[in-house]
Design a protein around this nucleic acid. Structure first.
Length: 156
DNA sequence: GCCAACGTTGGC
DNA sequence: GCCAACGTTGGC
């Protein structure tokens, strides 16, 4: 068993939120159409923990980490790339030659107190975290164990 | 809604 | 293989 890794996965709350995952218990993390993000998903292992980040927030619902999910299945072909009616359809992909993959993630917990991007920027120990970098658009990104634990700690 | 940052595409 | 144009993301 490989050592546990930590990640941050982004979703717009209006698209798929932590409460959706709480309700579903488990979901396929489909729709990732970025090679770097895909490659990170390829290196995920079952049991890895993910910070669940809501992007494109509002004043009422700020961008930030809203909870934790756990990888429950290693990367497999993302079914939405074959579906011409899906918004993530990719005509260059075929069942014989899939381009995009996704992992399955399971609900772990929803933070009682979400950690907003503002909170993250105020925390000196998180100075080097990817999500703080200007123009950080990567929707799946690695997070160090230390940073993961700090954010988890802040929510208590 | 604006705009900066970034990835992708396509002409050359 | 370069690079300008374009589309998308995401904070504000």
């Amino acid at each position: 068993m490989a050592q546990k890794q930590y990640w941050l996965i982004k979703s717009e709350a209006s698209c798929y939120s932590i409460s959706d995952l709480k309700k579903d218990k488990e979901t396929a993390w489909t729709g990732i159409r970025n090679y770097q993000a895909r490659n990170f998903m390829d290196s995920m292992n079952v049991g890895d923990l993910c910070l669940f980040y809501h992007s494109n927030g509002t004043d009422v619902h700020p961008s930030g980490v809203y909870g934790i999910a756990k990888v429950s299945k290693k990367a497999h072909a993302d079914a939405t790339q074959f579906d011409s009616k899906d918004e993530h359809y990719d005509k260059k992909a075929s069942k014989e030659k899939p381009i995009w993959r996704c992992v399955d993630v399971a609900f772990v917990k929803e933070f009682l107190k979400p950690i907003s991007l503002g909170d993250i920027k105020r925390e000196q120990r998180l100075e080097t975290i990817e999500v703080r970098k200007p123009g950080s658009r990567l929707s799946v990104q690695p997070v160090s164990e230390a940073h993961f634990k700090i954010i988890e700690g802040l929510s208590n």
